[in-house]
Amino acid sequence: NKFNKEMRNAYWEIALLPNLNNQQKRAFIRSLYDDPSQSANLLAEAKKLNDAQA
């Protein structure tokens, strides 16, 4: 399933972002599970926040 693969990839990328705190990571990951079709958008948002907090 395409969404499962995208979701799994996004999950690990988000989990490993160095500048997000655990609460932020959990919120993004919860959103991934709520709507796997938004994986790419959620990952992009997480990366933006990660960069902003660098």
Rank of each mutant, 00 (worst) to 15 (best):
N21H: 09
K2N: 14
D51M: 13
K25G: 00
K48L: 11
Q38T: 06
F28M: 04
N4K: 03
A54L: 09
K5P: 10
D51R: 14
R8Y: 13
M7N: 02
P36V: 07
K25A: 02
P18C: 06
A15Y: 15
L49Q: 06
S39Q: 07
P18D: 07
L20R: 00
A52K: 09
S39K: 14
N22F: 15
N9M: 15
F28Y: 10
L43T: 09
L32A: 01
Q38F: 06
N41R: 11
I14H: 00
E6V: 06
A46S: 07
A15Q: 14
A15K: 15
R8L: 11
L20N: 00
N50W: 01
R8F: 13
E13S: 14
D35E: 10
A52S: 07
N9I: 15
Q23I: 14
N22L: 13
A15L: 15
K25C: 03
Q24K: 03
S31P: 02
N19E: 04
N50K: 01
D35R: 13
N21C: 04
A44K: 14
L49G: 01
E6M: 08
P36G: 05
P18M: 10
D34H: 06
N9T: 15
D51A: 14
Q38K: 11
Q24I: 06
N19Q: 05
D34C: 09
P18V: 09
I14S: 00
R26L: 09
Y33G: 03
L32M: 05
W12L: 09
Q23F: 12
D34V: 15
L17S: 08
K48D: 06
Y33M: 07
A52Q: 14
E6I: 06
S37H: 05
E6F: 05
Q53K: 05
N4D: 14
D51V: 12
K47S: 05
N21Q: 11
N1I: 06
A52V: 09
N50F: 01
A40Q: 06
P18G: 07
M7L: 13
M7D: 02
N9Q: 15
Y11E: 12
K25H: 02
N19V: 03
S39D: 02
S31N: 10
A52F: 11
K48F: 08
L49W: 07
L43R: 14
L32C: 01
A10E: 01
S39R: 15
Y33H: 05
K47E: 02
A15G: 09
Q53D: 06
W12D: 04
K48A: 10
K47V: 05
I29W: 14
L16D: 09
Y11R: 14
K5D: 10
I14P: 00
S39C: 03
R30N: 03
K48M: 11
R30L: 08
A54C: 04
L42N: 03
E45W: 15
R8V: 06
I29T: 07
Q38A: 08
A52I: 11
